[in-house]
């Protein structure tokens, strides 16, 4: 799999660190109760299909970005702003 780093261009997946489901809404710092943080931290949509996720180009420019990838095919739609 090749991942399009928005800064460096396409690179092998092995240069990246995965950061999980990016569609989850992280409660703003200092807000949110235990339930909100639980749901954010511990539950996942985990779709078989389009998935927005965090990646970091950890062996490159170290930029974090959001990527849209289809989990049924591994086809990458592109970087999501």
């Amino acid at each position: 799999m090749k991942i399009p780093c928005p800064h460096c261009g396409e690179r092998d997946v092995s240069e990246f660190r995965y950061g999980g489901d990016a569609s989850r809404q992280r409660p703003a710092h200092g807000t949110g109760d235990l339930k909100a943080w639980h749901d954010y931290h511990f539950t996942f949509t985990n779709p078989k299909g389009p998935h927005t996720e965090h990646w970091q180009h950890v062996l490159g420019c170290r930029q974090w970005f959001r990527l849209s990838r289809n989990t049924a095919t591994n086809v990458i739609a592109g970087v999501v702003e």
Partner: peptide
């Protein structure tokens, strides 16, 4: 591996990733 997909049919969102 398809736990999330099947549980979704019952409206459940789980602490599971495939």
């Amino acid at each position: 591996g398809h736990t999330s997909e099947v549980a979704r049919m019952a409206g459940l969102r789980l602490p599971v990733e495939s």
